[in-house]
């Protein structure tokens, strides 16, 4: 039997395995039980683990996260789902005011081993508020880890790590990748560390840094640069945005001297800005060109007929890379 899975199936596998491994793990959210989640990420869990551990909650994000914080302080391992990241703002005050701070506030007496899962990002022709990339809201909140997988296998391994982690983890799932990529994901995989980027391609002329759905467009751009210009690119998949694995980025930047960051978040104050700053601080003398940023614009995500005009295209990525190479 092949173990080829989509990201949805891989996340589902991680949930099954972790809930089996730890009787304290609880999944709660809107439509996560009987419906199996609107994207089917939690399909079959209620049949296996019952209504006490798989909770279809009332429709209230603040209630979901606040309740999960209480559960976590009492020793359970809640995995809370926000149906879309665009509705997590209702819960943000619980995340900022308590999840991120409880360990610090209680001087170590309590901690909050909570995972807040949420689909995010554009590209699936969804309604308003269903396509944004606001990861920096979370990466900018001290006390949180923010994780963004890019494919089925790392999604499975990172979710396991997030569930086992003793502190709150914001787990953003790029829904454009939910079903578009299939990959070998065997059972019983080990978790990945929550502070390490992955080197997904070796090259020595330019460093691409990306994550989530944009990693796939970045890889396409790297292919094109190889084919059309004979340029070999190093490609780094961040996986965990906070804390940022700056060492891996800086090491590659020091070798290539040229860096382009690709993200679908709005550009200003975005993830690319932080990465550019770290590279400037720690690899300044090795740089041959300013760090390139391919990001979303500082506008609201347009309704879906025009969402591709907002999202970084392979063309834009390639152009920025060429500019950086020719600088």
């Amino acid at each position: 039997m092949s173990d080829k899975r989509t990201m949805v199936d891989a996340l589902n596998l991680a949930l099954h395995e972790e809930m089996k491994r730890d009787d304290n793990a609880i999944l709660l959210g809107e439509d996560v039980g009987v419906d199996g989640g609107i994207f089917r990420v939690s399909k079959g869990l209620i049949e296996t683990f019952g209504e006490e551990r798989i909770i279809d909650t009332p429709l209230a994000e603040s209630g979901i996260v606040g309740t999960a914080i209480g559960m976590a302080m009492a020793g359970l391992r809640p995995i809370a789902e926000m149906q879309f990241s665009g509705f997590s703002y209702f819960a943000y005050h619980q995340i900022e005011s308590h999840a991120a701070r409880m360990r610090w506030r209680s001087r170590g007496r309590y901690h909050v081993p909570l995972v807040v899962r949420m689909p995010y990002g554009g590209g699936v022709r969804a309604l308003e508020h269903h396509s944004e990339s606001r990861e920096v809201i979370y990466t900018h909140t001290p006390g949180l880890r923010t994780v963004i997988p890019s494919g089925p296998k790392n999604a499975c391994q990172l979710l396991k790590a997030a569930i086992r982690d003793p502190d709150p983890v914001i787990f953003l799932e790029p829904k454009a990748v939910y079903r578009s990529v299939k990959e070998e994901v065997p059972e019983d995989l080990d978790p990945l560390p929550l502070d390490k980027a992955a080197h997904v391609r070796e090259g020595d002329e330019l460093t691409f840094v990306s994550y989530g759905a944009m990693l796939h467009r970045t890889l396409e751009a790297a292919d094109r640069l190889q084919e059309e210009d004979g340029i070999s690119c190093d490609v780094i998949d961040l996986l965990t945005l906070a804390p940022l694995d700056a060492a891996t980025v800086v090491k590659s930047a020091s070798q290539t001297g040229r860096v382009v960051v690709v993200t679908e978040a709005p550009q200003s104050y975005g993830p690319a800005a932080e990465i550019a700053a770290r590279v400037a601080e720690d690899a300044f003398v090795k740089l041959e060109a300013p760090v390139g940023r391919v990001a979303g614009y500082d506008i609201h995500m347009p309704f879906f007929a025009r969402e591709q005009s907002y999202l970084p295209s392979v063309d834009r990525i390639t152009d920025t890379a060429r500019y950086t190479l020719e600088f």
Partner: peptide, 12 residues
């Protein structure tokens, strides 16, 4: 964005 459009760069 307009410049990119004029240089014939299409959105994916």
């Amino acid at each position: 964005f307009e410049q990119d459009l004029q240089s014939g760069r299409d959105a994916d």
